[in-house]
């Protein structure tokens, strides 16, 4: 499920771009100086011509290097939520509104290249910035720079640090598996040790979005073309409340981790599960959307929005 954030995009203007020669550029300048001195000494017309041609090419390449970044539009793309400890993939959409393609556009973080893109004329390209995230909640993409050496490698142009409002939802890291617990106040309780959802086939019903693909009656689909979902029960209503209060010996983060693990297990088992957190109650349900709602509640628990 893609989570997106406010589209704050950046277009690189003249004032945001800098340029300096690379060490290869300095070497080139040295060779040009030698050529010039030799041309002067020998009064060699072609030597002068070659010298000035090379210098002029370096100057023109400056314009091309600048052009490679100037007016490039950077916008946030999608970012799939991840669990803490994983690598979040921030998508960046680079839009080239110019009539010339842009080559070798490099995205740098802390001076190191993290992504590279070529963007055709009047087109967009998407790049992924992998970012290790350790804490739950909304994590923003750290500032990055755009840079390029194109076309000749004699010059290096880079942008000021670009901050765009690009956030990724980070779920709490799931804890190690732990048996379900329920609180004494629970009224509707499933049997302990009973596998939720049961093994017994109890019939089919019409497919609803969110049903696990493993329960779709594919044979019936092949016959009739209608999507139906097989239902399993075993006589019990597979319903569970995942409760904050059931875990008194853990601290907040650990509780959230355990609850996250239970959400995953409940979803995997095809159960109906609800979530109770201090001040938040999410009614029992199942399916990917429900799983996301629960994990998001855990991710953002007690964090300011």
């Amino acid at each position: 499920m893609a989570t997106t954030v406010a589209p704050v995009e950046v277009t690189l203007g003249r004032r945001q771009l800098y340029m300096l020669p690379t060490r290869y550029g300095l070497l080139f300048a040295l060779v040009a100086t030698v050529l010039l001195l030799a041309s002067i000494n020998y009064g060699n017309g072609l030597g002068y011509a070659l010298t000035f041609l090379l210098v002029a090419i370096a100057v023109v390449s400056m314009l091309h290097t600048h052009r490679n970044l100037h007016r490039l539009r950077v916008a946030p793309g999608a970012c799939v939520p991840v669990f803490a400890g994983e690598t979040a993939q921030f998508e960046l959409v680079l839009t080239n509104n110019a009539d010339t393609p842009r080559f070798g556009v490099v995205i740098e973080q802390n001076g190191a290249e993290v992504a590279r893109a070529d963007i055709a004329a009047r087109a967009t390209a998407a790049v992924m910035l992998g970012q290790r995230v350790t804490r739950r909640g909304w994590q923003t993409l750290p500032a990055f720079r755009l840079a390029t050496h194109f076309p000749l490698g004699l010059l290096y142009s880079w942008s000021r640090p670009v901050h765009i409002d690009h956030r990724c939802l980070v779920y709490p890291a799931p804890a190690a598996p732990l048996p379900f617990r329920t609180t004494p106040t629970e009224t509707l309780r499933p049997e302990q040790g009973q596998r939720l959802g049961g093994d017994d086939f109890i019939g089919v019903r019409e497919y609803q979005p969110g049903d696990s693909p493993r329960h779709i009656d594919w044979k019936a689909f092949a016959r009739t073309g209608m999507l139906t979902t097989k239902q399993f029960g075993g006589g019990y209503q597979a319903l569970v409340w995942l409760d904050w209060d059931a875990l008194p010996e853990f601290d907040t983060e650990a509780r959230l981790s355990v609850l996250a693990r239970w959400v995953l297990e409940g979803e995997a088992a095809g159960a109906h599960y609800g979530l109770r957190l201090p001040g938040i109650v999410i009614a029992p349900d199942h399916g990917e959307a429900h799983e996301h709602v629960c994990l998001k509640a855990l991710a953002l628990f007690e964090l300011r929005p």
């Binding site: 001195l37 002067i40 000494n41 020998y42 009064g43 002068y48 011509a49 000035f52 041609l53 210098v55 002029a56 090419i57 100057v59 023109v60 390449s61 314009l63 091309h64 076309p151 000749l152």
Partner: peptide, 26 residues
């Protein structure tokens, strides 16, 4: 790049001050 460089080159070529004689011995 070469085509765009040529006008610049031409200006530099025609206007760069030429000197009489040499910098070091031929």
């Amino acid at each position: 790049l070469v085509a765009k460089a040529l006008p610049l080159m031409l200006v530099a070529y025609l206007l760069f001050p030429r000197i009489q004689g040499t910098l070091w011995g031929l």
